[in-house]
Structure formats: structure tokens, C-alpha cells
Write a protein that binds this DNA or RNA. Structure first.
Lengths: 165, 165
DNA sequence: TATTGTTATACTCTATAACTATA
DNA sequence: TATAGTTATAGAGTATAACAATA
């Protein structure tokens, strides 16, 4: 993957990565939030895979584990809803966590259909270890930004999420 | 997918969507840029699929078409590099555009290995039509943000991209 | 030897429909 | 009838390795 690191003469009109010294015009992509969001997320995902996974948890799994940790005994569908995961896709993910010994699944005594999820000690350890690696990884990707800028970024991303009715 | 629209009492510690009036704690996810980037991109992708695609082009294809339009006769690998697409994955994408009659693929007279890519008239039309739909879609997702804020957002996303060495 | 385009392949994420068992 | 969990399946994106043709 090539980054926009060696851009020869970056102007509002001419952008993008170049290898031979010739700039490539991005056209309308230059001003589209969607394009930049897509690229930034791709970089984040790639760096996450390299720097956090093995032995850390994948981004989805870390999300699930985090929500369970912060809401002990929460049920599966509720976790899925908070994280925007389809119930159907949740099954394999929770299976994975249970198989790894990180999560316990118990029938809700108050509702025979529901499963209450809890972290095991190994689950807490995996969450902590992954979080430490994530902190490193975010620090690197956000290098050159202030805490204020990160807060602004999160706020703007949240607004996009909120507008996605 | 549930959004953070009906949060009962959003505090820095308690966040996330709720359906029955009970807030769910996101734990460490709350302050992680990666989490918010992931969710915002998911919303964007979903809204893009709903509002732009059919008859508009997919986000990847629109990117390719935009770069070809702005750099007539550019070769395939160069487009892939600018957009962060693997050469191997580029093949099927260009095949798709050629099959749709939007792109012409011609052997570079100066280099028998390379293909020069050009838009057809239909390609230009598809690009324009897709762009119009994208403008609508971005307007909706960025509702409530100023032009300045959008510029800040793009700048911060670009910085993440640049840090992804 | 390096590069362009290619094939094959595999994994993850996502989305939908339909089933079961409980409520 | 509505909901929790499940199964099956399909599509899209992404990643790597290896090959042919050309430079």
C-alpha cells in the first residue's frame, strides 16, 4: 500500500501518492469525506492487524470483550445492538470467544431464550493486553495530533454516525 | 443497526445505544479513535450502498473512474497505487468497468506490459451521475457540520493515513 | 533482474432469509 | 405475535503467492 508521504508538490488540486515524482490528480475524491474516511480506515485496519493482532484480539472481538467487561452479564443481542453487529454474525464471534476461553455464556435465569455473557479471568487479561497494544498503535497513527484534535475527530465521526439514520 | 441517537443520559463514561432506556457502557472504546473510525465508516458504507449504488458506482469503482478521468491514459498499476488497491485485486475491478463499457483498456505503445486506461463517454456519464448522488449522501451524513469542520476532519483523516507507514 | 498484469486462493466482514425455542 | 439465538448463504474487500510476458 502506498501512502501520501512522498508527494512532490501537493496542491489542493493535485494530490495522491507518487513513486516516480509525477503527481496523480485525485479529481473529486480530493474533497470527499467518504474517500478520506475509507483510506484512513484502511490504514488503521492494516496497522491494527500488524501491531495489535497476534497475540491481540481483532477489532470486532475487542469491542465485544470491552462491552462485556463494562457491562457484566449483558446479553448477546444487546452487545450486538450497541456495537452495530448483526445478531446472525454475533453467533460465530461469541463462539470464537467462548472457544478461546475468554467469555462465559450462561442461560439467563429470568429468560430462557437469552444468554448472559461474562468475561473469564483469561478474558480480562486478553482485554488488558489488547488495550495496551491498541494504545501504542493509536499513538503511532495519531502522531502529530493533539488531544484536542483527537477529541474533535471523535466528535465529528460520532456526528456522521448519528446522521446515519 | 442501532445508532447512538436515543441515548438517555450521555456522559463521558456511559455511552452507546439503548433501546429499553438503559445505557450500555462502552468502556475503553469510548476514547479510542479506531472504534469511532470503524463505526463511522460502517455508517458511511451502509448509507452509500443505500443512497448511491444502483444506479451509482460502488465506492472503489468510483475512485478508479475518478482517477482515470483526472489522469487520462494512466496505467492500471499506477491507479492501484494511488488508491491503495492491490494490483491483484485491481484486475477484476477494471474488468468490471470494461465490461460495463465505462473504461477502455489499451496496450501502452511505449511499454508492452502496461495498459493505458481511458474513460468512455458512458464512463464520464457514470462518474458524473455517481458524483451527484455522492454529494447528496455526504450532505446528509455531514448534516450539522460546517465546511470548516469538514476540512478539519479530512485533514485529521489524512494525518492518520500519512502516519500509516 | 524488475515490473505489469494475471490467476488462484483464503480470510474477514457484512447482509439477508428462514428456522427453533422461548416469551 | 414477538424476541433470542441460530443456521445457511452470498457478496464484497482485502491479502499473499506464484506465474507469463515484457522491460
Amino acid at each position: 500500500m502506498v501512502r501520501a508521504a512522498t508527494i512532490p508538490a501537493q496542491t489542493p488540486e493535485s494530490d495522491g501518492a507518487a513513486d516516480d515524482g509525477q503527481a496523480v490528480n485525485l479529481g473529486p475524491l480530493h474533497g470527499l469525506v467518504g474517500y478520506h474516511l475509507r483510506r484512513a480506515f484502511a490504514v488503521l485496519r492494516s496497522d491494527y492487524a500488524r501491531a495489535v493482532e497476534a497475540p491481540g484480539l481483532r477489532q470486532v472481538l475487542f469491542g465485544i470483550v470491552s462491552v462485556i467487561a463494562a457491562n457484566d452479564g449483558i446479553n448477546q443481542t444487546r452487545v450486538a445492538r450497541v456495537l452495530g453487529i448483526q445478531r446472525a454474525n454475533m453467533v460465530a464471534l461469541v463462539n470464537e470467544l467462548v472457544a478461546m476461553g475468554l467469555v462465559l455464556r450462561a442461560v439467563d435465569p429470568a429468560d430462557g431464550r437469552a444468554f448472559l455473557l461474562t468475561l473469564t479471568a483469561a478474558g480480562e487479561a486478553a482485554r488488558d493486553a489488547t488495550l495496551a497494544r491498541i494504545d501504542c498503535h493509536e499513538q503511532r497513527l495519531l502522531n502529530g495530533t493533539t488531544a484536542d484534535e483527537r477529541a474533535v475527530l471523535i466528535g465529528l465521526l460520532d456526528r456522521i454516525q448519528a446522521n446515519g439514520a
